[in-house]
Simulated assay, not measured.
Amino acid sequence: MRYHNITKDDMLNGEGLRVVLWLAGCDHACPGCHNPITWDAAGGIPFDEAAKEELFAELDKDYIAGVTLSGGDPLYCGNREDVTALCAEIRKRYPQKTIWLYTGYTWKEIHDLPVINWIDVLVDGRFVQQIANSQLHWRGSENQMVIDVRRTCQLGQVVLLDGTK
């Protein structure tokens, strides 16, 4: 797995103050994407033990609400196994922190992936420039959903996070 950046003290990519891991690799190529540099799976730098420790050092801080995985696409086929393992490790090490994941895939396409067991919120769907809306909370275009993963899995139907759509 490769990544481009670890953003600290982020307030734009999920609830509360967060750390964001920007992963490399995306095959959606959405027109108008804010991060096209992250599409190349061979771009960025390897996510090694030093990078993981940098991420964990941020999660160690009491005032950090959790981690957000973005990119690129954390669920790009080449990332899925490593992202699942990382989310499982984060959940076990920081059970009180939330895990948000942004993907261009829809809930219907990925709801049965193992990573779903470890995340709290999924922002799904490709960015669609024609229906982009800067007033939306935590998403860029109106087709995207901010899904409360735990409640969705419990109830067997998509439950949106309060305050969205």
Rank of each mutant, 00 (worst) to 15 (best):
residue 42 A to D: 13
residue 20 V to R: 06
residue 45 I to P: 00
residue 38 T to P: 00
residue 29 A to E: 11
residue 58 E to A: 13
residue 43 G to T: 06
residue 51 A to P: 06
residue 24 A to R: 07
residue 12 L to A: 10
residue 24 A to T: 06
residue 55 L to S: 01
residue 13 N to L: 13
residue 21 L to E: 02
residue 19 V to Q: 02
residue 12 L to C: 05
residue 38 T to K: 05
residue 12 L to R: 15
residue 47 F to A: 01
residue 48 D to E: 13
residue 41 A to I: 15
residue 29 A to P: 00
residue 17 L to P: 02
residue 40 D to G: 01
residue 47 F to T: 04
residue 59 L to A: 07
residue 46 P to H: 10
residue 61 K to N: 08
residue 35 N to S: 14
residue 47 F to I: 01
residue 27 D to W: 06
residue 29 A to F: 15
residue 47 F to L: 07
residue 45 I to W: 09
residue 14 G to H: 08
residue 14 G to D: 07
residue 54 E to L: 09
residue 19 V to C: 12
residue 56 F to C: 04
residue 46 P to N: 07
residue 26 C to G: 03
residue 24 A to D: 03
residue 25 G to K: 07
residue 54 E to V: 00
residue 54 E to S: 11
residue 60 D to P: 01
residue 17 L to K: 14
residue 24 A to K: 06
residue 15 E to T: 06
residue 49 E to A: 15
residue 58 E to M: 09
residue 37 I to F: 14
residue 60 D to Y: 05
residue 31 P to S: 07
residue 43 G to E: 01
residue 47 F to V: 04
residue 18 R to I: 06
residue 15 E to D: 14
residue 52 K to L: 12
residue 45 I to N: 00
residue 16 G to H: 05
residue 25 G to I: 02
residue 43 G to H: 07
residue 59 L to V: 03
residue 21 L to N: 05
residue 14 G to T: 04
residue 38 T to I: 01
residue 40 D to S: 09
residue 49 E to D: 15
residue 41 A to R: 14
residue 48 D to I: 08
residue 54 E to K: 14
residue 18 R to Q: 05
residue 42 A to P: 01
residue 45 I to L: 08
residue 35 N to H: 12
residue 14 G to M: 02
residue 27 D to N: 15
residue 31 P to Q: 02
residue 39 W to Y: 12
residue 55 L to F: 00
residue 41 A to E: 14
residue 38 T to S: 15
residue 18 R to D: 06
residue 16 G to K: 05
residue 48 D to A: 12
residue 26 C to S: 08
residue 60 D to Q: 13
residue 60 D to A: 13
residue 13 N to R: 14
residue 27 D to H: 11
residue 30 C to H: 09
residue 36 P to T: 02
residue 24 A to C: 13
residue 26 C to A: 08
residue 32 G to V: 04
residue 15 E to K: 13
residue 58 E to V: 07
residue 55 L to C: 03
residue 30 C to I: 05
residue 31 P to Y: 07
residue 50 A to S: 14
residue 42 A to Q: 14
residue 59 L to T: 07
residue 17 L to I: 12
residue 55 L to P: 05
residue 50 A to F: 04
residue 15 E to A: 12
residue 40 D to A: 07
residue 59 L to P: 02
residue 12 L to G: 04
residue 57 A to T: 10
residue 62 D to Q: 11
residue 50 A to K: 13
residue 37 I to G: 12
residue 47 F to M: 01
residue 34 H to I: 10
residue 17 L to R: 14
residue 62 D to S: 12
residue 54 E to Q: 14
residue 55 L to Y: 02
residue 61 K to C: 01
residue 50 A to Q: 13
residue 19 V to S: 11
residue 43 G to K: 10
residue 41 A to H: 08
residue 33 C to D: 12
residue 58 E to C: 11
residue 49 E to M: 09
residue 20 V to A: 02
residue 49 E to F: 00
residue 54 E to G: 04
residue 47 F to E: 02
residue 57 A to Y: 08
residue 14 G to F: 05
residue 53 E to K: 14
